[in-house]
């Protein structure tokens, strides 16, 4: 495993497009997290500052990070399709890796990327929480930190999708387009055509719902100034109208099962793939 990690790091970290994309991801994430509160200050009577306070900050930064996931999926697609384009999968088999090793290398890559996102979200949550919160206690700070584990599983799943599509299509553009079409067009269309209760059992839904959307409306409301209390009930009602989905533990079980399925499919394809 250590050997595969070293090999994967050598080929990944020395690849300039990888460095650029990771750099962009980092910069855009930081801009998204730390510059939003400044914009917010210009809107009268409304503040989203509570989103940056403990414990809500955990949900909020996790939610923000999900907007940047696509760039990481594209990274995995790029690195995997490169192996086919450069015929380096074939070369590595010849030199003595097994087909399972080829898969393990990429599992290591997606684990590292998932860990990177968790670290980024963890550090920025703690930093902005400490900066913006008025009240800081141990419980308040770490109450929602479990979400980092859910985030890891979530990112890992998205990246596993990217890996599977790359192994199927072996072409960067095709894999990327199919991934996007599946997420943005195919699954949503199927979802709206099935019974309401079944909609939560679609991959994009239960994986996304691993990290619940922050209750933005009620938090903003709490900080509105000069408003009467009657608005409170209305907003609560609006929140209730928004569907909640399955309990977290059910989402987690479904997601873990999905990861198993994606990994098995990837392994099976690599096992059957002709490399010449």
């Amino acid at each position: 495993m250590i050997k595969l990690l070293k090999i994967e790091l050598r080929k990944t970290l020395n690849y300039i497009p990888f460095r650029i994309l990771i750099g962009l991801h980092l910069v855009l994430f930081i801009v998204g997290i730390f510059f939003l509160p400044r914009v917010d200050l210009k809107i009268p009577f409304v503040t989203i500052l509570p989103l940056y306070q403990f414990p809500h900050v955990w949900n909020f930064t996790t939610w923000i990070s999900s907007f940047y996931n696509i760039s990481l999926v594209l990274l995995v697609i790029m690195m995997t399709c490169n192996e086919f384009n450069n015929k380096t999968y074939k070369q590595q088999l010849i030199f003595g890796l097994s087909r399972t090793d080829l898969l393990l290398q990429k599992i290591i890559l997606i684990s590292l990327l998932s860990f990177y996102v968790v670290l980024l979200v963890g550090v920025s949550s703690v930093a902005s929480g400490l900066f913006y919160s008025y009240k800081i206690t141990f419980n308040l700070v770490f109450d929602h930190s479990w979400i980092l584990a859910a985030l890891f599983v979530q990112i890992f799943t998205y990246l596993s999708f990217g890996l599977l599509f790359s192994l199927i299509f072996r072409n960067m553009i095709l894999s990327g387009v199919v991934y996007l079409m599946y997420r943005v067009i195919v699954e949503p269309i199927i979802r709206v055509n099935v019974h309401e209760d079944l909609r939560w059992y679609f991959p994009s839904k239960f994986v996304t719902n691993l990290t619940p959307r922050p209750e933005v409306l009620s938090m903003i409301q709490k900080n509105m100034q000069g408003q009467n209390q009657s608005g409170d009930a209305e907003i609560k009602q609006m929140e209730n109208l928004m569907p909640i989905g399955l309990p977290i533990w059910q989402n987690l079980i479904l997601t873990l099962a999905l990861i198993g399925l994606l990994m098995f499919a990837s392994w099976w394809i690599l096992k059957k793939r002709r490399f010449n």
Partner: peptide
């Protein structure tokens, strides 16, 4: 086998290091 396939963006040294790591 057939044409030699290496990572085009890596130096010769780094390419050989990957193979050395595979071969322990």
């Amino acid at each position: 086998i057939e044409t030699p396939s290496f990572y085009p963006y890596l130096s010769l040294e780094n390419n050989l290091k990957i193979i050395a790591q595979i071969k322990d």
